[in-house]
Every structure is written in structure tokens, then in C-alpha cells.
């Protein structure tokens, strides 16, 4: 019998705790596959962040350190300064990175730290039960904006990739999505570019991955993928926002 597809060696055997239809699992797999394919798995050091993905260290087959809310880029800086030649990454959600961790994410880019941030943006606080994030879309109903986000009251959503792309130390910034197979393939390419950029010493790389939260959004997994495509992509356009000149 021929093996057509196997679980990546970059993932452990553990079953994830993610809700049905959540796209964290896809993003985990992409990170794992890239680390394996680029020969980085054995040396990689990951920084998990507060949010649904805090337990990512149970699923990614790499050494990992858990970080306090928003501080993963600072923790990763400490790790990288001890091991400047090893691949170091953070895996953060939008509540963590775009709200409580804005100072740390701006300054990790500002210093041009040679680390890669996987920024999973699902426009909501998932783990704490569906509260408003800085990335929540106008009109989107969440538990702390039950009538939908009102920009007059709470402002307009933060476009993190665009913000980080204009920081001089940022070397590679791309926004991707995982709502269909073509998008997943592009997301994997972007994650690969992020790690290659780091290992080439160009500077900081951030891959924003538009993601779903069926539970928090109150939609089925299929409806969620459609909602992402119809609502998130228009506000958060996909594409490369910054890349080294030779890339």
C-alpha cells in the first residue's frame, strides 16, 4: 500500500482541543510542515501566547516556551538573543497580539529581531468566550458588543499587517487566509517565506493568517469559511506588504 499523505513529523500525536471548524489546526500543520521541509524542526524554538493557541506546545513537535498575555515577542527576543542562529517563532492570536501585546509586536519589528510571528486573526477573543477584539469588524456581534461593534464607540478594526509593514525593521510581512485549499497553499508559501527571511538574517517577519472562530461567531464551520471570505478579506486584503528586495 502506498502512503499518499501522512501526519507531519512536525506535529505530535495529540488530538487538539480546538472547536470543530476552527482553522488553528490548519495553521499548526502549515507551520509544522514548513519547519520539517526546511530542516528547521530540530532547532526550532516556539513561543506560545495566551489565547486558544496557548496549548500549541502540546501539538507542535518543537521546544516551546509559554508567554504571558501579549509578551511572546519579548520572550522570543530573549530566546533569540541566547540562540541567534536558531529559528525562533511566536504563534499569537489577535486578542493577544493586536490588543495587550501591541507594544511588544511593534518593538520586536522595530529592533528587526530575526524571529517569525504567526499572527492568527479571527476577529474575536476565542478562549475567553467571544469578546470584542481590536480586529472585530464593524457590526460584528460579540459578547462585549452585543449589538455589533459600533465604530463610533469602539473605533475601526486595527490592520496589524499594514501597521507592522511600515516599521523599518520589518523584513517580510504578508497577510494570507486559510478559507479554501488555494488560500491554504498560499499561506504555507508565506509561512515558508517568513522563516526563510529569518534564517537569511533579513529581520523580522510577520504572517497574518485570517482564520475562523465558528463557536465565537455563532456559525457552522462551512458558514464560517464563507463569512471570512465575504467579510474579513474585504477589510483585511490579502497579499505581501513588505519583502526583502531580493525575495
Amino acid at each position: 500500500m502506498t502512503v499518499v499523505h501522512a501526519r507531519s513529523k512536525g506535529l505530535t500525536d495529540r488530538e487538539t482541543h480546538y472547536c470543530p471548524g476552527c482553522t488553528h489546526g490548519i495553521v499548526h500543520r502549515l507551520v509544522a510542515e514548513v519547519l520539517v521541509e526546511e530542516g528547521l524542526l530540530n532547532e526550532a524554538i516556539g513561543c506560545a501566547a495566551v489565547g486558544c493557541s496557548i496549548l500549541s506546545y502540546n501539538y507542535l513537535n518543537v521546544d516551546m516556551v509559554e508567554s504571558a498575555h501579549g509578551r511572546a515577542p519579548a520572550v522570543a527576543t530573549g530566546v533569540k538573543r541566547v540562540h541567534p542562529n536558531k529559528p525562533v517563532f511566536t504563534y499569537q492570536g489577535d486578542g493577544d497580539l493586536a490588543s495587550i501585546g501591541t507594544a511588544e509586536i511593534v518593538h520586536v519589528a522595530h529592533r528587526g529581531e530575526k524571529i517569525t510571528t504567526i499572527f492568527v486573526n479571527n476577529a474575536i477573543y476565542g478562549m475567553t468566550g467571544g469578546q470584542m477584539a481590536p480586529t472585530t469588524l464593524p457590526g460584528q456581534k460579540v459578547t462585549t458588543a452585543p449589538d455589533g461593534r459600533d465604530p463610533a464607540h469602539a473605533g475601526l478594526p486595527l490592520r496589524v499587517a499594514e501597521m507592522i509593514a511600515q516599521v523599518p525593521g520589518a523584513a517580510y510581512v504578508e497577510r494570507v487566509s486559510v478559507h479554501n485549499p488555494a488560500a491554504v497553499r498560499k499561506a504555507k508559501k508565506a509561512i515558508r517565506n517568513g522563516f526563510l527571511c529569518q534564517m537569511a538574517g533579513h529581520g523580522f517577519s510577520l504572517i497574518e493568517v485570517l482564520s475562523t472562530c465558528p463557536t465565537g461567531w455563532g456559525l457552522s464551520p462551512i458558514e464560517s469559511l464563507k463569512w471570512l471570505e465575504d467579510n474579513m478579506i474585504p477589510y483585511y486584503p490579502l497579499g505581501v506588504l513588505r519583502a526583502p528586495e531580493e525575495a
Binding site: I45, C47, V65, S67, A68, R71, A74, V75, A76, T77, G78, V79, K80, R81, V82, H83, A103, E104, H107
Partner: peptide
């Protein structure tokens, strides 16, 4: 905040 968390990361990394 960042400084103490850099210490945390560096210490975790040995």
C-alpha cells in the same frame, strides 16, 4: 514589561 519577559525568554533558553 518587555524587559522582564526578555529575561524570561533568555532564562528559558538557558
Amino acid at each position: 514589561l518587555a524587559a522582564i519577559n526578555m529575561v524570561y525568554g533568555a532564562a528559558a533558553a538557558g
